[in-house]
């Protein structure tokens, strides 16, 4: 097989030549950092619960505190180093969502506070809200249809 015979041959050739990511190491780091972030969340949750707050409010408090920590670390130029090390370990928890809002805000500061920060804030995280909220509305509508027909979905 000559690599330049066709585009497909070349793609296969390039795939063979390209080094793979160190997936085991990455997964290990993602596992313990991700687990640790969740555990911090659980500890905050337990503290909030011991103050007698309701389950929903506790969840919200956990989210807000983790988001604040993530925003703070992003502002100190530290979060990208954690992200580089942990990959999905810091991306998948709510900290990654916060980072994906904070980082473009800082990046586009140079285009002004209204159209730069305000306008570009959701360049990375926007799709998360669009798909998350849209899906939740569909879930609500489906539930409504089944519920009015007295068939319970959940």
């Amino acid at each position: 097989m000559k690599p330049l015979d066709s585009k497909k041959d070349y793609q296969d050739y390039v795939d063979k030549k390209s080094p793979n990511s160190p997936i085991l190491k990455n997964c290990f780091n993602a596992f313990w950092v991700g687990g640790l972030i969740c555990t911090i969340g659980q500890v905050i949750m337990n503290i909030a619960k011991s103050r007698g707050l309701s389950q929903d409010i506790c969840g919200t408090i956990v989210s807000i505190i983790l988001i604040a920590i993530s925003a703070f670390l992003t502002g100190l130029n530290i979060f990208n180093k954690i992200g580089k090390f942990a990959g999905a370990g810091s991306l998948i928890p709510i900290t990654g969502f916060a980072n994906s809002i904070v980082s473009p805000s800082m990046e586009y500061k140079s285009e002004g506070y209204v159209m730069g920060v305000g306008g570009k804030m959701f360049t990375v995280a926007g799709p998360v809200l669009v798909f998350g909220i849209s899906t939740s509305i569909i879930v609500g509508l489906i539930y409504l249809i089944f519920n009015t027909q007295n068939i319970t979905l959940v």
Binding site: I23, C27, A30, G34, G35, T39, G87, A88
Partner: peptide, 17 residues
């Protein structure tokens, strides 16, 4: 909590890599 959270992140890491 640690193990479940970690495993969910590992799924994400596999998707990334």
């Amino acid at each position: 909590c640690f193990i479940t959270g970690g495993l969910i992140c590992v799924i994400g890491q596999i998707l990334i890599d």
